[in-house]
């Protein structure tokens, strides 16, 4: 808060020059506008998930339930099996990332499984974001990870299993600068 520090500095300088024994108080108070956030308000908007799994809610979902949800909410744009639709390819990579027509699917490309949960929960389905429960988001994540060959059909996905999953292309990214 540069302007505020400048005011404090000039107040201190004034004190020095005038030989006051005690420094003058700041010329103005720190703004402190806004309001402290109530705990339930805070959690209502805490959607984000870290790659280490912090922020994942409790709950769980199965691959089978995810298949049903995908057919209802996602297949219209992403295709019945998560490919071949008008929207981004999510499954079925056959050409590697150094191929001239590389397939960039969740299984072949995405570095973190947590990103999947975070994105589905905050933004999907496109026309009605924020309407899926935590269990439903776990189930959709489970089906997508299974369809990419990353978990078995009987996996019950939850926070611990999602955070522990190491994606195949995890080391395919090089940070160029701080974000």
């Amino acid at each position: 808060m540069d302007w505020f520090r400048i005011l404090i500095k000039s107040a201190a300088l004034t004190a020095l020059l005038t030989g006051c024994a005690t420094p003058l108080p700041p010329l103005i108070e720190a703004p402190k506008l806004g309001m402290p956030v109530a705990a339930d308000t805070l959690t209502a908007q805490m959607l984000n998930v870290f790659p280490d799994g912090r922020g994942l809610p409790s709950g769980q979902g199965s691959v089978a339930e995810g298949a049903r949800l995908f057919a209802r909410h996602c297949a219209g744009c992403h295709g019945k099996d998560g490919r071949g639709g008008t929207a981004e390819e999510l499954t079925g990579a056959s050409r590697p990332l150094d191929h001239s027509a590389a397939d960039k699917t969740i299984g072949s490309y995405w570095p973190y499984a947590t990103t999947l949960f975070d994105f589905i929960r905050r933004a999907k389905p496109m026309g009605a974001p924020g309407t899926l429960s935590a269990d439903e988001v776990y189930a959709l994540s489970a089906w997508l990870l299974h369809a990419n060959g990353l978990i078995t059909a009987d996996t019950m996905l939850d926070a611990a299993r999602l955070a522990a999953l190491r994606m195949p292309n995890r080391d395919g990214f090089l940070w160029i600068e701080a974000p």
């Binding site: 984000n48 990103t115 975070d118």
Partner: peptide, 27 residues
């Protein structure tokens, strides 16, 4: 730490000829 959200871990990422990706090429 970075959150690795979809638009910084999957999109807005630079594909290199060897198949690796440059991430956080923000400037």
């Amino acid at each position: 730490q970075p959150w690795a959200t979809k638009d910084e871990a999957v999109h807005y990422i630079d594909l290199m000829p060897d198949g690796t990706h440059r991430q956080y090429t923000s400037i």
